[in-house]
Computed example of a mutant assay.
Amino acid sequence: MKIRVLGNSVRFRLTRSEVDTLCTKGYIEDRTAFDTTVFTYAIKLVADTEQLTAQFENNTISLNLPKFLGNNWHQTEQVGFSETMEFKNNDSLFLLLEKDFTCLDERQEDQSDNYPNPKELL
């Protein structure tokens, strides 16, 4: 799982096996250790929400995907989901959850579990 934080936006990208795990088990997480502190980022399927939401607590970013959207995501062509969370202080946070496609340029990272890039198929 990859995350990208830029200003007031957070983007999560998942490989095929990560999407499968999220859809079948309802939860996925990864961690990055900073010496004695661990930063965790997680996605869970939740039944009690109608839209993508997130929170940051205890060094963890948790993205909540409505269960009705995520249950069969691994069996569809849908690339992802997005939402803008509005806050009381007139600020907002853009959330994006998407399948991770192989890059068109050369990369050092392992991309064997990524989805085929649609631009490759043209």
Rank of each mutant, 00 (worst) to 15 (best):
L104A: 04
F87S: 03
N90H: 12
Q111R: 02
V79L: 13
S17D: 07
L63V: 09
C103P: 01
A54T: 14
N71E: 15
F87G: 02
F34M: 13
Q111K: 01
L65A: 02
F81M: 02
Q78T: 14
D100T: 01
Q51N: 14
N114C: 12
E29Q: 05
S62H: 03
S82C: 07
I43C: 03
D35W: 04
N117T: 03
D110Y: 06
R11V: 10
N8G: 10
L69A: 07
N8L: 12
D48E: 13
D30N: 14
Q111A: 02
V10R: 09
V10G: 04
A42E: 00
Q111Y: 06
E29T: 06
T76R: 08
Q55E: 15
E83V: 00
T60E: 15
P118T: 07
L93Y: 00
A47E: 15
R4L: 13
K88M: 15
Q55I: 12
V5C: 12
L69C: 08
I61D: 05
F101E: 14
N58R: 11
K99W: 06
V46L: 05
G70S: 04
L63H: 00
L97G: 03
L97E: 09
E29D: 10
R16M: 10
S62P: 00
C103L: 09
L52Y: 00
Q75E: 14
E98T: 01
Q55A: 14
D105W: 10
Q78L: 11
T53L: 13
L65K: 04
E77Y: 11
L121V: 09
E77R: 10
T76A: 07
D91L: 09
T49G: 05
N64D: 11
E18M: 00
F34G: 06
R16W: 05
T84A: 01
L96T: 08
N114G: 01
A47M: 10
M1I: 02
L104K: 11
I43Q: 01
Q55N: 15
F81V: 02
P66Y: 08
L69W: 11
Y41G: 00
C23S: 08
T15Y: 03
G80Y: 04
L95F: 02
R107L: 07
L69N: 05
D110K: 04
F56N: 11
E83A: 10
K119N: 14
M1V: 02
D20T: 08
G70D: 03
S17C: 06
P116M: 05
F34L: 12
M85N: 03
T37W: 03
A54W: 02
F81H: 00
A42Y: 01
Q55R: 15
N89R: 08
T15L: 04
E50I: 13
